[in-house]
Amino acid sequence: MAENKMLRIKDLRVVFPVGGKQIHAVNGVSVDLAPGEALGVIGESGCGKSVTFSSVLKLIQSPPAMISGDIELNGRSIMDLPEKEMQKIRGKEVSMIFQEPMRCLNPVEKIGVQIAESLRLHEGMTMKQALNRAVELLKMVEMPDAEQRIGCYPHQLSGGLRQRAMIAIALACSPKLLIADEPTTALDVTIQSQIIRLIQKLRKETGMGIVFISHDMGVVASLVDRIAVFYAGQIVEQGNTRDIFRNPLHPYTAGLIKCIPRLDTESRRLYTIRGSTPNLTTIPEGCCFAPRCPYATETCRTVKPEQTAFPGGRSCACHHAASLN
């Protein structure tokens, strides 16, 4: 491809029919990722961040979900790929790690065998070769006593070690893209900081691209190059990590940053974004954030703001982005 993008999502829309209503979970998302780039995806629950990136692996069953738009991996559209072809991509080209390692690991299979599975499938290794490689992978994710631990079942490992095992599975076939969906949310802070450091280290060593999905701005801040802020199934702002934190263009981004208590917050009140996240059964006419936005005007309520480009490779969907700044 001319611009050399590893992942390109174009105008993705995902609609779930639920009890006669339609939930517009993803509502026109376009985002792309260069090889080796780390993208942070920020947003509150139900904003469509997980659905968007689960679609990259075609993990959203359709039907019932109605998916439109286009997703390209290394220049090839995956929208019409049959399941058999997708299996070749999952784990090999793109891997995903999830929030709850206990629910995503097979409880009746040893860790080593679970890591070996994709190696045997994609790389055609024998069980013995695959298990040897599994030990190397566990060492890479800094699992202590890796030789012994390949014989453990998931319940015999602590939360942090389970998450390491899941990362080892995801990295088994050296994917070019790793999608991490809230990988540290269920972990204690001390373990969280180790997993973050581990992902940083692996990125440096392997040069893979990373999509890091989180609702925690603190976790994302130190880890990624670029951030996409999701709200109500749309991306409201994209830009470099430093720009987003230092100089947010969208009122929602600014609010998100302001309402986190920091270790040095001294005041006795937190900034709040009034109201709550919108109901996704109807697409609002104007800007989806208008009902909660302190700067909303008549235009915001009636005209949907388009993604507008700003200097420094940024974009923002807000009528007032230029003037607020």
Partner: peptide, 18 residues
């Protein structure tokens, strides 16, 4: 504790996790 600030790196933690 990760600080929500890109200029503050996550410190190398000097204790074992868990």
């Amino acid at each position: 504790m990760p600080e929500p600030d890109p200029d503050i790196p996550v410190e190398v933690n000097h204790i074992e996790a868990g």
